[in-house]
Amino acid sequence: MNDPLFTLLIGSGILLLAVVSFFPQKGLFARMKRTRTISKKILIEDALKHLYHCEYSGVGCSIESIAGKLSISEDDAAELVAKLEEMGMLSSQRDSLQLSNEGRSYALRIIRVHRLWEKYLADETSVDEREWHHSAEEFEHKLSSSDADELAAQIGNPVFDPHGDPIPSTEGDLPEKKGMPLTALKFGEFASIIHVEDEPDAIYQQLVAEGLYPGMQVRMLEESKERVRFTANGEECVLAPLFAKNITVEQIKLEKTIEGKFKNLSSLKIGESGTVLGISKALRGQQRRRLMDLGVVPGTEITAELKSVGGDPMVYKIKGASIALRKKQAERIYLHSEKSEMN
């Protein structure tokens, strides 16, 4: 019984078992929780959401597209549609499926929770950008309307989610769809990104990896069937048209744009100074408020003062105070480049 080898094996076994079952997200427990949640209710809600998205972007919707979207068989999808019709959520006219008012408001409630949750994760937590959508897909079915209202009040009743999508109001109002796909821009035109579509996932991950987010200034360089080449905040970017379509832009007046590459705070060497142009949209929530409280607003002059032992963070003189900022933050604070300073 007290044979050390035997005890050792038992102990390792228990430890291994604990790790396998409780590992976050990949463990047995987490998996079990996830599979259990795919219930009828969720299928209905997801189908309504899909129908609403089709309607909003003016694309037709069919039983096949529902089956594809929800990864269920077409028979199941047909059954689901029948059930929705029975509930009075939608009517099928000729070939297309039409949401009823009731169905639309149900879908909007779900979308509201989804986008609020994404906004919450972006501003109030340090959850990675790539996980926002997955987490929201889960929480949209869990949070009740009143929970969502409470959450909205807590984060200041936001009107846009971090991807640039408008958040439906409690009454289910949504503004008209604005902007146009990036691919519609012509050579040399300026625009700013107002929305980055978060589905399908594979495309969204790619766009995040490229560092694209709402608020960036883009200028089209080349638009062909094979590729779309453009600058985003001065950084050149090449995407396949399929990917570029998932970015919505709005044209902007020319005088506000900045020529050439954006200069950022992290490019300053010790002793050099620069004037703040703005803070990137990628710095959100508390982090953004903190920087603004410290006086990092357009027009403030900042001097690089001191490097730490490892080179990151660095100390900057901001409004008379010495503030240490990490490289990742400094990269997201834009400065006037010398050229625009002369103007």
């Binding site: 340090s126 903190r290 990490r326």
Partner: peptide, 19 residues
């Protein structure tokens, strides 16, 4: 912790070096 249970908490770095 920062990779698992504490992901749900906000993070904001700044550090002042007083004179």
């Amino acid at each position: 912790l920062s990779k698992s249970v504490l992901k749900g908490e906000a993070s904001a770095f700044s550090l002042e070096l007083p004179p």
